[in-house]
Design a protein around this nucleic acid. Structure first.
Length: 323
DNA sequence: AAGACGAAAGTGGTTGA
DNA sequence: TCAACAACTTTCGTCTT
């Protein structure tokens, strides 16, 4: 009756202790070895606590190519590249509150009055409608969620676009910002073929999986989003990186999955489970064996699923494995 | 001792009457 | 709306390396 519950490491939500050997480097914030590189920003993002660490390359966004001096003049940089993830698309200038000029001298009274007027208008214009206030909140939630999920910048931008479209269609009425942002992120990650599962999104959100799912369905139908069915191949690079597998091994896994698809083994099956199984088999073939438990944990499925899928793959594709 | 295996029962989502 | 169903999970005892 009073049995102490046994530790079961196959539980998908079981967190490894800090300092335990995991993939990636150690996060200075939380101690987990869950740092992953966001190629688009060069940031190291912790998949555990969402901390952004490492040397950030300042604003490496598009510096336009110029082929003539006129072009150079026209296109020389002013400020950061425009981004839809900033509520006013990054075009605003913030007027400081101090009544001093850039040299620290006090301003004349007429100048002071002018600055006061400017500031007043700025606050009115910048966040002038409830629509904008909603966006400000949504985009900060988007920031948080996408950094926790380790989502690349491009996907984040797509999420922001989807969210804006949802706002235009007034889909935000009666729905929570968090759920709508979660749904946008989920949709965007699938559209851009770096899928996160509904589970993963919901795990880092304050709203339930059910609600995110409901919002997602609304988004798809109302915005007529073209969302491709998730392919197990899309998961390979993420899982492969987490498990520190070579590119060769990942390619082998992709081959196996392609074979499985032509054999009709993929229908109705959990794509993450299939990807996990393919990685298991590929690991053995390429001499980079990972245990079923390790793979199950990174793919967030159970060992049993990995086993069932890989047995099926081996049997139906006639793959010989040794060891 | 860790990893792999498979049976059996339970769970949540989809489908079709 | 409900039952049947397939896929997946949980749990656990056993075999293999």
């Amino acid at each position: 009756m009073t049995d102490i519950p046994k530790t079961n490491f196959s539980r998908p939500n079981q967190k490894p202790k800090p300092d335990e050997e995991e993939s990636g480097h150690k996060c200075p914030e939380c101690g987990y070895r869950r740092l992953i590189l966001d190629e688009t920003t060069g940031d190291q993002i912790c998949r555990e606590c969402g901390a952004v660490v490492g040397d950030r390359i300042v604003d490496e966004g598009p510096e336009w190519r110029a082929f003539s001096s006129e072009e150079r003049d026209q296109r020389s940089r002013v400020g950061s590249p425009m981004s839809v993830t900033i509520h006013d698309k990054g075009l605003s200038t913030i007027i400081g509150w101090e009544d001093r000029d850039i040299y620290g001298r006090r301003l004349s009274s007429t100048k002071r009055a002018e600055m006061y007027r400017l500031r007043k208008w700025q606050t009115r214009i910048r966040v002038h409608s409830s629509l904008d206030r909603n966006l400000v909140q949504a985009l900060s939630e988007l920031d948080r969620l996408s950094s926790q999920l380790g989502i690349p910048r491009g996907v984040k931008e797509t999420s922001a676009v989807i969210y804006r479209k949802a706002m235009e269609k007034k889909l935000s009425r009666g729905r929570s910002i968090e759920a709508l942002v979660g749904a946008s992120v989920y949709a965007a990650s699938r559209i851009r073929r770096v899928p996160r599962s509904l589970d993963e999104v919901a795990r880092h959100s304050v709203v339930s999986k059910k609600e995110v799912g409901k919002c997602y369905r609304v988004l798809v139908t109302e915005l007529e989003l073209k969302v491709p069915p998730p392919s197990p191949i899309d998961y390979l690079s993420r899982f492969g990186t987490d498990l520190q597998l070579s590119g060769m091994c990942q390619r082998r896994a992709a081959e196996i999955l392609t074979g499985a698809k032509t054999e009709g083994l993929t229908g109705g099956k959990d794509p993450t489970g299939l990807a996990a199984a393919a990685i298991y088999v590929a690991g053995i073939i390429e001499g980079e064996r990972r245990t079923q438990r390790e793979i199950a944990e990174t793919a967030r499925v159970t060992e049993v699923t990995v086993r069932n899928r890989y047995k099926e793959l081996v049997r139906r594709l006639g793959i010989e494995i040794s060891g």
